[in-house]
Simulated assay, not measured.
Amino acid sequence: MSSYIFPIKTAMITFPILAIFITIPFSLYQYRKYGYINIFRNFILYSFLLYLICSYYFIILPLPSVTDVRSLQAEGTQYTQLIPFNFIIDILKESTVVISKPSTYINILKERAFLQVAFNGILLTPLGIYLRYYFKKDLKKTIIITFCVSLFFELTQLTGLYGIYNAPYRLFDVDDLILNTFGGFLGYLIAPLFTYYLPETNTLDDKVDLQNLKVSYIRRFFAFYVDWFILGFIPYKDSDLIMQAIIIFLYFIVLVYFTNGKTIGKALFKIKIKGKHEKLSFKEVFKRYGLLYYGFFGINKLLFTTGDLNKIEYTNYIVIIAIIGITINLLIFIHFLLCMIKKDNRLFYEKFSDTRNIIA
């Protein structure tokens, strides 16, 4: 049993790390395809990801302690088993079940050969459920996809984890292909039993009004992150405040004005800035991003810059600037919390410029 628990524990540890790396591209895909993120759809897809990780770990873990596994194997070690339904012979060889004695039937649930067959039979059963329920695949496509996934698993074992090990450390078994594919088929058949009380995935977006849907802070943060990730490739010294001011002016003010509310990040996540009228005015854009970057972020930049001044005669000025900076940041933090509590997604610089984010 521990051989089955270990892969699950490992998957639970690595899943959050992988989820962090895929969150932004995954969110980008959903925003562009659906215009928003549906929490239930997120739950289904992330659970599907966790299931795939667990399945993969089941067929590769535990890993050998050395890459030279060939030296640990006996001469003539068999790497493939190509006889279909050989698992029946294995079960009969190891079984202590006596047909004439029903009391021995329970013993089969403890036998290695039977448990191995049962495990391979249910390994891809959830895949069949996911394929029918969420991905809307028919029976033929479900069987084909399940077989391909099973073949991928077997080739992973046959290649010694893609050449990392100099010989396979697990057997390529044609019975596994048969049992895994049957599991996917079974999953397809029983899917309605598991999804009866779940909403139909093709109706998740029916009642969503994208025109009146507010742009979440998470979506705005992703767009903000992409914008500054792009600007990070522009070579300039961190101490060159004038160059930074010029870059901000060109990217967040001039570009947004000429694109009528879009930066690259906002365009990717299908949002834009909206002013009083259909066309943004230069004044609205300048007020919005001038207050944010030259005002709020400018004060913070000045605060960190003064930390480099070590001359004793500047001590009083440093203390004053530090107090001002801390006070401003505290007030902005409180303002942000109040906006979240009131469910008002317009922050101070948006209210001052009378602009807001909308879904493009």
Rank of each mutant, 00 (worst) to 15 (best):
Y225S: 13
F297N: 12
L193N: 09
S281I: 04
I323T: 14
Y29P: 00
N345M: 02
I218H: 07
K101W: 03
I129R: 01
L124C: 05
Y36T: 03
M1W: 11
S55C: 07
R356F: 03
G290C: 03
M340R: 15
K101I: 06
R32D: 06
A245S: 15
G121M: 06
Y217W: 08
F119H: 12
Y293R: 04
L123P: 00
L309Q: 11
Y169S: 01
I299G: 00
L50Q: 06
L28R: 01
V174E: 02
K237R: 15
K266R: 13
Y105F: 13
Y236V: 08
P84T: 10
K311M: 11
L193F: 08
Q73N: 15
L231K: 01
Y165T: 03
I20M: 12
G76W: 01
V319W: 07
L241E: 10
A74P: 09
N345T: 02
I37T: 04
L337M: 15
V254M: 08
G265L: 00
Y57R: 05
G325I: 02
I321K: 05
L179R: 00
Y257F: 15
I108V: 13
S2R: 11
V117N: 04
T80A: 15
T104N: 08
N329D: 12
W228K: 14
F229C: 06
V226R: 00
L177I: 07
Q157T: 09
K274V: 06
F269V: 03
A167C: 10
I334L: 12
T80L: 11
P235N: 14
Y79Q: 03
F182G: 09
S3A: 14
I89V: 13
F21A: 01
T125Q: 10
I230W: 07
I145S: 03
K137A: 09
L193S: 12
C54Y: 05
I253F: 03
I264Q: 07
L123K: 02
L52A: 11
Q73H: 13
S27H: 01
V69Y: 00
R32C: 08
L231A: 00
I22S: 05
A118C: 06
F352Y: 13
Y257V: 05
R41D: 14
L250Y: 10
A267I: 02
K276N: 13
Q73D: 14
E313G: 09
K343H: 14
P84G: 11
M12S: 11
M340E: 12
D175L: 05
K301S: 15
P16A: 12
S27P: 00
D205G: 06
E94S: 10
D68T: 07
L231R: 01
C54E: 07
P102F: 04
I359T: 09
L331S: 12
F296E: 12
S353D: 09
L131K: 05
L161V: 07
K272W: 00
T142N: 09
S47A: 14
I264H: 04
N202D: 13
I324T: 11
L337W: 13
N316Y: 09
L115F: 02
F233R: 15
P235W: 10
L231V: 04
Y134K: 06
S27G: 04
D227P: 03
S3L: 13
K342N: 11
K274L: 07
Y293L: 06
